[in-house]
Structures are given as C-alpha cells and as structure tokens.
Nucleic acid binder design. Structure first.
Lengths: 209, 209
DNA sequence: AATAACTTGCACATCAGTGTGCAAGTTATT
DNA sequence: AATAACTTGCACACTGATGTGCAAGTTATT
C-alpha cells in the first residue's frame, strides 16, 4: 500500500504553535532565553520541545524565517511612482510590522543569524536599493554616496528608530512619522522638506502603513 | 616601620600592558574571545592572567574604561561657537578615536556593559545634548523632536557609520566626512547644505579630527 | 645572596545550558 | 478498543569556559 502515514495530531500542531508564540515572546525580552523557559511558557516540558524542533538553532531559524517572510510579504505590495515617497512608505510599513518585535528584529539583523536573515531579506533590500538608485538619478536624493552604501545607511536609520523606541517609547503615530523622517534625513532631505513631503502625501498617513 | 612594600616589578607592569593590548586586539575581532586566547596572545599563561585581573569582567571593565577615558579626553577640547559645527567636530573626532576599534566600540555601547559605559560616557553625551539644544534654540537644527531624543539619534547616526565601515571599508578622509554628513543629516540639514557647511569650515577638515 | 614578586602547570570544582535514551504515561484518531 | 502519536520525567553525557589551590620554578630588585 501507499505510505499513508497518519496526519499529525491536532494538539501537537497547537503545541508547536504555542512554542513559537512563547519563543517570540520570551526571546523578544531576552534573545538568550533558555529552552526550558520557552517550553514552560508554552505549557510544555523541555523534553517535548525537542519533539517539535531538533535543537535551539532550528527553533530560532524557523521563528526568524516566519518573521522575515511576514515582513517581506507585507512590503511586497508597497509601490509608488515617486521613489522618495516609496522609501518613506517602506519605512513606515516596516515600522508597523516590526514595532512589536523590536528586540527580535534587531537580533535577527545584527545577531548570530544575520547571515541567514540576510538571505531572507534580500528581496526587501533589493527594493530599497532600487528606490535609492532611482531617487539619485532623478536628482531627488543625495548623490554624494554610492547607492548601496546609502541604502545601508537607510536601513541603519530605520533600526535606530527601533532602538530609540526601546529607550523612550513612541506611540504608533509618532513611530511611523519618526522612521520616515529619519530615513528621509539620511537620504538627503532637510527636516522641513521631509516633514512637508510627508504631510503632502496622504498615503504616508499611518492608516495602511 | 612604615608599610613600605616593594614596588611592582617592571616585567609585571609590561605583562599587564601586554594583556590589555592583546585583549584590545582579540576582543575587537571577537568580543567573546577566551581568556586563554588573550593570555596566549600576550605571551602569558591563562593562570598568570589571573594575577593581573581578578576575572574576565574586571579585565573587560578596565579595558573599556581606558577606551572611554581616552575618547572623552580627546573630545573634551572640542569647542566651537556654532553648535552645528561643534556637532560635526565631535562626530569627526570621535571617528578618529574609534575607527581602529570599531567592534569594541559597538560592543561597549550596545553589549552587556553598556550601562557601565554609559556612566563613563556621560560627559560626552551631555555635551552632545547641549549642542543639540543650543542648535535648536538658535533655529539651526530641527525642532520637531525633543533634544534628548535627537541627541540619541545623532549617536545612532555616528554608530551607523562605524557599522558601515565594517561592511565596506572607508578610508580616513571618507570616514571623517561621512560621520559628519550622517550626523548633520539626522539633525535636520539637507545634504547639500551639510556638504557646504563642511567645506566652508576648514576646521572640519580631518587633520586634527 | 637573599627576598619578594612573578610565572607556570596541573588538578579540580563549578556552572548553565544543550541534547539523548528510555520507559511509562496520556490522548487523539480510526 | 486498538493504535499510533504525543508528552513527561529522569538520568546522563557533554561542552566550553571560568575561577582557585598549590607547589615548584624563574627573575627582578635590594
């Protein structure tokens, strides 16, 4: 007969999800949280966690992958004729996706898995770079830096706002605006210019970002 | 008789210095480098390292303190009537002090010792904040953010250049200029404006910075 | 030459966390 | 009710690094 193995049990599926939830929660407070703690938070024993994930690394990778996919997907739909507005849109929506998982996000990008994360984030980074290049050739953005360098500084500018919000909380509206402002400033705009650009474009209002 | 204990031996002094040098070198490549490795690089056994430093933490703290003091001292002399130029000067000189120890610098500010580092860096941060406030009330800098927040973003902007230079090397001249540009952009200036300001002030030329 | 300072090697205790094997239980599914 | 899937507890091995005690050497200093 055909290898018809039983489907995974329902409770097992739930448990796996619970582990991922717990991991997201705990690792976002301390990226070094132990498997013991995570399993407990998920209502399981450490021993059974190993029934779902072969080891710590696998759990981490799955978790980071889920996050990366979510972000990349959310940003895939961002489009705008004006590359500057597009950059602001990307920044804003990124903030929206990531503000609740700041620590994990920083860990993903800077921690020991940054290489792995880089792979998953490739499409996003490519889009940012494209927007930067476009903006440079249209004369809207600074041209005193090569596009790839500027794109990386843009990323840092966005991360800086994540860090900042950890030090001194930003409400949703302020957060959205600040990522955009910081990115636009990095990319060459003066602060009034940047503020006006944001105000002039209703699509930059945080309702869909 | 008076407690006249012998002075420390000369070779011991040298060895202590060698350990600090080795630590600076190795920890700048990997902040988790083992004491074994550090001692070896200093030409000593791990066991004797403990004759100079009670434990890993002490070694780290001494090393970070030395670095912090060096930086704070180097920046203490920075002064300029124009707060914007002053910020640029601080950024530039900071880069000069820190470019050769990027990883350690990032570790100092973001790693597990960031609290300790914060204490040592207090005077510097205070000066940055003061410059930002001054620039805001003179109308030269953006006023859409509270001074302390802006000051922290300025710091992040400087760190971003450190990170960037790790990814894609910057020669001395380019580094100095880029920290300034990135800081000035963060603080509200447009990129042309920032560039012109730097060019207009010969004291911002990297020769003393 | 005497002395204190310093270095070394080795053995040992410690520690927190990871990953496994196994036997005995519980529970979803058929 | 039978079966496979899942969970659990416990014991254990392991790892990589830190920190200490001690006895025996070497070396700077007086």
């Amino acid at each position: 007969m055909t290898t018809t193995e039983r489907a995974p049990r329902r409770d097992a599926i739930d448990n796996r999800a619970a582990i991922l939830d717990a991991a997201r929660l705990l690792l976002n407070q301390d990226p070094d949280a132990s498997l013991e703690a995570i399993a407990a938070a998920a209502g399981l024993s450490r021993r059974s966690l190993y029934g779902h994930f072969a080891n710590r690394d696998e759990l981490l990778r799955v978790l980071l992958d889920l996050g990366a996919v979510r972000v990349v997907d959310a940003l895939a739909s961002v489009s705008h004729a004006d590359p500057v507005v597009r950059l602001a849109l990307i920044a804003s929506r990124l903030w929206g996706e990531v503000e609740t998982v700041r620590v994990m996000a920083l860990f993903a990008v800077r921690g020991p898995f940054k290489g792995h994360t880089a792979t998953r984030l490739e499409p996003l980074r490519t889009r940012v770079r494209a927007a930067v290049e476009e903006g440079q050739s249209s004369g809207a953005l600074r041209v005193d830096l090569p596009a790839d360098r500027l794109a990386r500084l843009v990323e840092s500018a966005a991360l800086a706002v994540l860090e900042e919000s950890a030090l001194s909380p930003l409400d949703a509206a302020a957060g959205h605006r600040l990522v955009m402002l910081n990115v636009l400033g990095t990319v060459g705009l003066g602060w009034r210019e940047a503020g006006e650009l944001i105000d002039a474009h209703p699509e930059l209002d945080r309702k869909d970002g």
